[in-house]
């Protein structure tokens, strides 16, 4: 628990620090990173800890976003809007999770993919919320201490949700629920024999991740003020999946790093070519073919080798000291002998 709290504080400090040094444009991008990080971390939970590769995760992101846009026509209270997005996505993911959990592996993937596509087609076919063109809205968050209008304010607001999500996921994965989830991923039938009903633990994680993706989608509206069926597309789901992999599969913070790398690379590449989708596809293929871990694995590898190097240097220095001492003694001996 101590380590979890310490890492959360570290993360908080980093989030606090960014607007101090970054340019407005970087702050703008980083806000997007934080939203996608919440989304990717939630997917990372069910993929990397639950072994459930869902292509339906964008359904929840989109649902959260649509909820805020639809309700913002009538209410503006941020608690109501976020709360509604959370509750709706929790219910939706509980129900769809319950259905999808009847199947494993490839069936699971297909069923979740089908959920996403259904929402995509419904949202683009309905005239209600702009249909295929999407719809814009005007929402400002007011948590009781004034409207959050500046981009720095927005960054901090979303930063709070990001740090909270990180903390929650860290605690969850270290709790009995989380440990059991991992066990189910490793060996489901053995878990049944040990006294667990695997479906409960998988559905619980799926629902939690769904609610978190819903919140990410809702926050996305506060930043972009626009919603379109694109959010439901397989593309969005696939992007989240690639963030998980770029960042580091099987860790909590990895997907957040992946989101950061993804958003910045996308931005950079899109500035000089329209072929981002092509490049993204090639990145997918490269990641699979090269079979390397994510950024977080590379970082920990680098960290370990630094630690090892320092240890080595330290022991060398110690040896030097010993050698010098020995030399001194020899000299002293010689001196005493000559006397």
């Amino acid at each position: 628990m101590k380590r979890i709290i310490l890492s959360t504080i570290g993360l908080m400090a980093a989030v606090l620090f960014i607007p101090v040094v970054a340019s407005p444009y970087v702050i703008y991008l980083s806000t997007e990173v934080l939203i996608m990080a919440i989304f990717a971390m939630s997917l990372g939970l069910i993929m990397g800890f639950g072994g459930m590769p869902s292509l339906g995760h964008s359904a929840l992101f989109g649902l959260g976003a649509y909820t805020v846009v639809a309700l913002s026509q009538y209410v503006s209270n941020v608690y109501v809007l976020l709360g509604a997005a959370l509750i709706l996505t929790l219910i939706f993911s509980l129900i769809t999770g319950f259905i999808a959990m009847r199947n494993t592996g490839i069936f699971f993937l297909m069923v979740t993919l089908a959920f996403t596509q259904v929402l995509y087609l419904i949202s683009s076919g309905m005239n209600l919320w702009g249909g295929a063109d999407g719809m814009s809205t005007m929402v400002r968050a007011n948590f009781g201490f004034g409207n959050i209008a500046s981009s720095t304010g927005l960054f901090y607001m979303i930063g709070v949700f990001f740090v909270l999500s990180y903390f929650l996921l860290k605690v969850y994965t270290s709790s009995p629920m989380g440990k059991i989830l991992k066990g189910v991923m490793e060996n489901e039938s053995r878990m049944t024999a040990l006294g667990f009903n695997p479906k409960i633990f998988k559905t619980a994680a799926y629902t939690l991740a769904g609610g978190m993706a819903g919140i990410a989608g809702a926050l996305y509206i506060y930043k972009n003020q626009f919603v379109s069926p694109e959010l439901f597309s397989v593309h969005t789901a696939a992007e989240a999946m690639i963030m998980v992999f770029i960042g580091g599969y099987g860790t909590i913070f990895g997907p957040a790093l992946g989101a950061g790398a993804f958003v910045f690379i996308e931005n950079y590449v899109s500035s000089f070519t329209d072929r981002w989708s092509l490049i993204l596809g090639l990145i997918f293929i490269a990641i699979v073919m090269l079979k390397r871990g994510g950024i977080i694995h590379l970082l920990s590898l680098a960290w370990n080798s630094i630690v090892r190097m320092r240890k080595k240097m330290f022991s060398e220095r110690k040896r030097n000291v010993v050698e010098v001492k020995e030399e001194e003694e020899m000299v002293n001996e010689r001196i005493t002998k000559s006397q």
Binding site: V234, S277, G281, L282, F284
Partner: peptide, 22 residues
């Protein structure tokens, strides 16, 4: 690996789709 298959073939969709668009 199932996850690898998913990633790889998703990547192919992106590449082939964007090439066709091009």
């Amino acid at each position: 690996s199932e996850t690898d298959q998913v990633l790889l073939t998703l990547g192919l969709i992106f590449v082939l789709g964007d090439l066709s668009l091009w």
